[in-house]
Design a binder for these strands. Sequence first.
DNA 1: GTGAAAGCGCTAACAC
DNA 2: GTGTTAGCGCTTTCAC
Lengths: 343, 343
Amino acid sequence: MPKATIDDVAKLAGVSIKTVSRVVNREPNVRESTRKRVEKAVAQLNYRPNQSARNLASHRSKLIGLVYDDPAAYESPSSGYIIRLQQGVLRACKENNYELLIHPCDMRDKDVSKQLRDLVEQVRPAGIVLAAPLSNLPGIVRAIESTGTPLVRLSPGTTRRGKYSVSTNDRDFSAEMTRHLASLGHTKIAFIKGNPAHKAVGHRFLGYRDGLEQSGLEFSERLVAQGDNSIRSGEECANKLLTRKDRPTAIFAANDDMAAGIMRVAVRLGIDVPGELSVAGCDDIALTRQIYPAMTTIRQPLAAMAEHAALALIRNGANTSRDLDPEVIPAELKIRESTGPAP
Amino acid sequence: MPKATIDDVAKLAGVSIKTVSRVVNREPNVRESTRKRVEKAVAQLNYRPNQSARNLASHRSKLIGLVYDDPAAYESPSSGYIIRLQQGVLRACKENNYELLIHPCDMRDKDVSKQLRDLVEQVRPAGIVLAAPLSNLPGIVRAIESTGTPLVRLSPGTTRRGKYSVSTNDRDFSAEMTRHLASLGHTKIAFIKGNPAHKAVGHRFLGYRDGLEQSGLEFSERLVAQGDNSIRSGEECANKLLTRKDRPTAIFAANDDMAAGIMRVAVRLGIDVPGELSVAGCDDIALTRQIYPAMTTIRQPLAAMAEHAALALIRNGANTSRDLDPEVIPAELKIRESTGPAP
DNA sequence: GTGAAAGCGCTAACAC
DNA sequence: GTGTTAGCGCTTTCAC
């Protein structure tokens, strides 16, 4: 049978389409008996409002757009990052009958801004959740904002009162991890920096320095290596740090992939983890629990962040960015098997 | 400024809206000079067609829905699986200016069918890509098909001529992997079965038996353990298989997570991989390349499968399932460091 | 409380 | 080649 429309329902219930609309949208001012009658007709005809028609008439849709950078490598190691973002937004969507549109894009593309503008102007989602590191590019943010589409930035490098955004306290927790290592007796704690394009990763380095200071340890450039977030770069840095006589007894990497690289090198060099070397990462990707020894790391509340962002969009619509102050959701230390007392 | 509509463009270009529509949709029968004029007006007004209006008028949208089961565990190990599916569909979407809507759902839910029917009737995507294991549930398939929305099933347990679907040759490649292990001199090759709810995983066991037979090796129930696709179950099975005197020299697991469990146990038992034990998995998740030794596995062409499915939907629309025969995209053996000659 | 009428911004069918 | 006329199925506005 051809799909039932609002007219069919109205006819069957003996009311006007406006009344059907009221019932379907749970608007007030409908007599209880009328409501019942309409609901019966809806059930009988198996009526489902057509979203396209609603969107067109109301100028808004029930779609949340999730936009993130996709390294697009052959199964990027960031899949855990992306999945958790998606899960968060999905939780918010499910609760409110919204759907999720995902739109990865390539930061290095010259016309990301144009692409995104096309996306929002054509699809007209109810709002956009913009993940880091894209959320730190002013050009992109402006491109979306200029369309009037409500936008929430995740993990922004800069925040402003009265401008809603969601982030976590990278710096504090990196300091805490560093203090944790120091409290285990480590004095030579190395740090592997990540891709400088990621602001959050920069905050982690600052946290590392804070932690050293708070533990009364001296900072030394010799204990710092520059990676690029990849496993390979982790291996290279680990090779450099671990093959000299005065090697560190603990290495803290700005992300888990690089930390995994360290552990691979340790196995090859015959260095026992955590007996001779403690390794700590950052992100809590699945890998950290899949290997032996399981990796100590910092769990970012990615899903929670994404969920808060999406809920804010759903509940506040166009007012989302105004009025609300930035929100910070704390991360969590996950002490596992790869860290232990200094040798 | 208020968004430009097709009427604004028509007025500015001095043509009718139908002509603008023709130009925008690249339809034939427009004089070159007219086309130019319209294009200029479009650029000048920064006109973007409103998708909602298009959808409503044309009864179709530029959205592909990707539907899969989501174990929803705290960062499921299946994130690689999901990401690769998404990447495939996204490739098809990008090329054709479609957007991707993702809709994970819980197989165990009693009303998945209803949920999915609501989804397609409200959003009216141009088509649905349905991933395994959902694609093997007749109730779900019927629920979607009954709405008339074009549907392509991925990795279906059963295929039918003249009914398009996309799958891979699990059985053949499991046999090939088994033969590979046999060719390395292994005679005691164990197999860890996965979650019986996943048909593909059942095919892998059959392939294992094929491979044994083709290599002139005898099948023995003692060399088979039943896992459930999780790392933990891999550990339990490995413990069982590796702690008896007559232990196998090679273990082939129906997925990579269970294989990772085997390797964790091997490290703890002091069994060298691949010196004393060869380990092979299935799926080629990121982990296989993140650990040492890197894991030998079978790479399913998930992204390619998803891409073919989405392209079929985009290109053939409502005719997708008719006419086209099922498609099989071959998997690929990835021989890495975790397998070697029998001791 | 309820309904009539007027769009929303396009595409489709057909006339010219 | 190009334009005219009807919708698509809702929400909105405002009258009752």
